[in-house]
Design a protein around this nucleic acid. Structure first.
Length: 282
DNA sequence: ATGGTTGCTTAGCAA
């Protein structure tokens, strides 16, 4: 009937995207670890999974190197915040994104491409690649903790916990020990350190809830990342560091959330698996 | 106890 874009009261998903049956909009996040290395696998997974919107991290290309044409041929719109060699985030969507904004928009003048947001109807989508931190105590570690503080500031400035909003991505933090297959081995690492956990909790305290944990209340897992090194996947040495966080009114309508562990198997997998959440009545 | 992998870029870094 009407345009999906302008009104905050508009449905999350435009009528034109709705099939004969009621749509159950699907949001996904996937650290592809180079979109060039993962392109064929990504296309095949998108065709099977049929999400409505997909947040990508570690695309490792600038916008001009991004395979936009090939994705458009497969029916995807793409918003890109690219970077050569490292980092880089994108959002793929069946319908075009509005209000696309790269970066945290603070005055830090940060050269690293780690966040991109856009809007689909009333839903705001934020694709995030939190710094890894490398080694506790290093400059990169300080940057990680500071970046998480800046992310909290970004949400305060640009969003509202009352609106339907998702923060999706590789947050490089396993929030609790049950998010780690072998917590003793990872004690005090950059992914499990209490300071990183506290910084992520402070981001969530703005008004975000963990969609996947809601649907997997016990753990351990489900895990989303297994290190290439030390043969983490065959050893079952996984961690849950990729997340879909939703504002409270939105997470109430999350009817399912899962990790696509199959995507970590087979030929040339990313070290991460995709994470998916479905929402009702959007 | 140790080492092990992958991607980008080309020997070193990042994860």
């Amino acid at each position: 009937m009407c345009c999906p874009s302008s009104e905050s009261s508009a449905p999350f998903w435009p009528a034109s995207s709705q099939g004969p049956r009621e749509r159950v909009p699907k949001v996904a996040t996937y650290n592809v670890n180079s979109i060039r290395a993962r392109f064929e696998r990504l296309l095949a997974w998108l065709a099977r999974e049929q999400p409505d919107v997909v947040c990508l991290q570690e695309i490792k290309v600038t916008e001009d190197e991004f395979p936009r044409m090939e994705l458009e041929a497969a029916g995807w719109h793409a918003a890109i915040h690219g970077q050569r060699t490292y980092n880089g985030v994108a959002i793929l969507s069946r319908n075009p994104l509005d209000d696309v904004q790269p970066g945290l928009g603070d005055d830090a003048n940060d050269p690293e491409a780690r966040v991109l947001s856009g809007r689909l109807g009333a839903l705001r989508v934020v694709s995030v690649y939190v710094p890894n931190g490398q080694v506790v105590g290093s400059d990169k570690w300080t940057y990680k903790l500071d970046w998480l503080r800046r992310l909290r500031g970004y949400l305060e400035r640009t969003g509202s916990p009352e609106e339907p909003l998702v923060v999706c991505g590789d947050l490089n933090v396993a929030p609790e020990d049950r998010d780690v297959a072998f917590p003793a081995q990872w004690l005090g690492s950059v992914l499990t350190h209490e300071a990183a956990r506290a910084a992520l909790r402070d981001v969530a305290a703005w008004g975000l809830a963990d969609a996947v944990r809601r649907h997997h209340p016990d753990g351990p897992g489900p895990f989303t990342w297994w290190d290439y090194r030390m043969l983490g996947f065959p050893k079952g040495d996984g961690m849950r560091i990729d997340h879909i966080l939703a504002t409270r009114p939105l997470v109430e309508r999350c009817t399912g959330a899962y990790v696509v562990r199959e995507e970590r198997k087979g030929k040339q997998p990313s070290d991460h698996a995709p994470v998916v959440a479905v929402f009702q009545d959007l």
